[in-house]
């Protein structure tokens, strides 16, 4: 079933802020198998010029999909989650995410298109601090296999 194009342009702001903790950064770094001390040790992070430990470049995946998740699970969109694979992903940084950040995420469905038998949907997430400082923008494209067939 084709995805509902009416969803293009809709923005979902995360209902609560995301507080970045040292513990979560360490857990994520361990899960990707990366022993870099800048993710774990404040002194190592400071020596590299950061005020506290920073997060790996792909860390925002942890919280950026929460807002869009609400849209993606809306039955009116018509997405069959079992057939979803990840198509493309991009992270664009103004500055690294660091422990202590309190972040707000606004996710917008920017595009839905058919490619062959598949449906592709792109979500842009604008991540700022609660004070309004821009931190990063992420772009997530998912593919629903066979969705356009």
């Amino acid at each position: 079933m084709a995805l509902n194009r009416d969803f293009v342009g809709r923005t979902y702001v995360s209902p609560s802020t995301y507080e970045v903790s040292r513990v979560k950064i360490r857990e994520f770094a361990a899960a990707i198998g990366d022993p870099n001390p800048i993710y774990r040790d404040r002194e190592a992070a400071k020596a590299a010029g950061h005020p506290d430990v920073i997060a790996p470049p792909t860390f925002p995946i942890v919280f950026t999909l929460t807002g869009a998740g609400e849209a993606l699970s809306d039955p009116d969109l018509g997405l069959n989650y079992a057939m979803v694979v990840h198509g493309e992903q991009r992270f664009e940084y103004v500055r690294p995410i660091r422990a202590g950040d309190e972040l707000v995420c606004a996710s917008t469905i920017t595009e839905i298109r058919s490619v062959g038998r598949n449906e592709m949907l792109t979500v842009r997430s604008d991540v700022t601090t609660v004070e309004g400082e821009a931190v990063c923008t992420t772009y997530n494209t998912i593919v629903e296999r066979g969705g356009a067939a």
Binding site: G49, P56, R90
Partner: peptide, 27 residues
Amino acid sequence: GMYTMAQGGRYVTDWAGDPGAVVDYGV
């Protein structure tokens, strides 16, 4: 896919020496 992307990220951050040096990363 994000696990694979993270390995690519690790490759770049290990080369650069500081993960904060990565300003844009897409796959």
